[in-house]
Amino acid sequence: MDRFPLHMKVNGTQMTVDVDPGMRLLDVLRDVLGLTGTKEGCGEGECGVCSVILDGKIVDSCLVLAPQVQGREIITIEGVARNGELDILQEAFLEAGAVQCGFCTPGMILAGKALLDKNSHPDRREIARAISGNLCRCTGYAKIVKAVELAAARRSGKEGATGA
């Protein structure tokens, strides 16, 4: 198949890459752009380790084909920290002990971010639902839920402080 120019915004940078239209977004990110923070766990949209944020929504990048992201905006784990400074969520994951093997971590952080960007005061059930497409075999999820709660509290604290 002929390659085509794919225009997209990845982690804030507008870019164009020539790719095969049959390519999965996951492979565009990992193999073309070298953004290996996005992992592959099952290739069938069941585990969520390949999660990225597409136009504000969490998606499994193994289920998205390159043409589907034409002109759209993608955030991967590499785009969460800004200027070498960790995002509140990343800090909360470290503090709450939400990281063990780390393989689900990028997807989990992005799932948490997609939630908090829309809902700044989620309850536990909402957090669990937001990360329910992301499997973790190490932590038993409890500390991941706590990390998202902690980040939510800190974010709204910060917003409150600056917004007042």
């Binding site: 990992r30 070298g34 953004l35 290996t36 923070g37 996005t38 992992k39 592959e40 991967t76 784990i77 590499e78 969460v80 920290a81 960790l86 990343q90 994951f93 470290l94 503090e95 002990g97 990281v99 780390g102 393989f103 971590t105 990028p106 952080i109």
Partner: peptide, 23 residues
């Protein structure tokens, strides 16, 4: 003490190189 894990930082930023990430 519940110190943070020594490999935590690279795992939350996506820098941690798992075998499939090796170039």
């Amino acid at each position: 003490q519940s110190v943070q894990r020594v490999d935590g930082l690279v795992k939350v930023t996506g820098e941690s190189y798992f075998a499939a990430d090796e170039k």
